[in-house]
């Protein structure tokens, strides 16, 4: 799995989100996601939303994923 696959997967699940996925080994990934769907959600709920989108991949293909989630306001 590579960063683009993960980015596309998240974008499919969160159509108007801004998504960036980085990795230097295709094993450890850092996903930075800004979406207004996070507004009003706790950080825990925000991460759960992303984990539900990536549920299948997290079982096998993704071993280490760091999540950075923000609402548009937090990103100003």
């Amino acid at each position: 799995m590579n960063p683009n696959d993960i980015q596309r997967q998240i974008e499919n699940g969160l159509p108007n989100a801004s998504v960036r996925v980085d990795s230097n080994d295709n094993i450890h990934f850092v996903a930075t996601i800004i979406s207004d769907e996070f507004t009003g959600l706790s950080r825990l709920a925000q991460h759960r939303l992303i984990y539900s989108i990536l549920a299948e991949d997290l079982k096998e293909n993704i071993h280490a994923l760091q999540l950075i989630t923000k609402t548009p306001e937090e990103n100003k």
Partner: peptide, 23 residues
């Protein structure tokens, strides 16, 4: 209902994994 390890619980409540504990 959290797909990764580690997981921290405090007083029976799930607090989070690494990212959230860091924050």
């Amino acid at each position: 209902n959290w797909p990764t390890i580690p997981q921290l619980y405090i007083q029976g409540e799930f607090v989070g994994g690494c990212d959230i504990i860091n924050e």
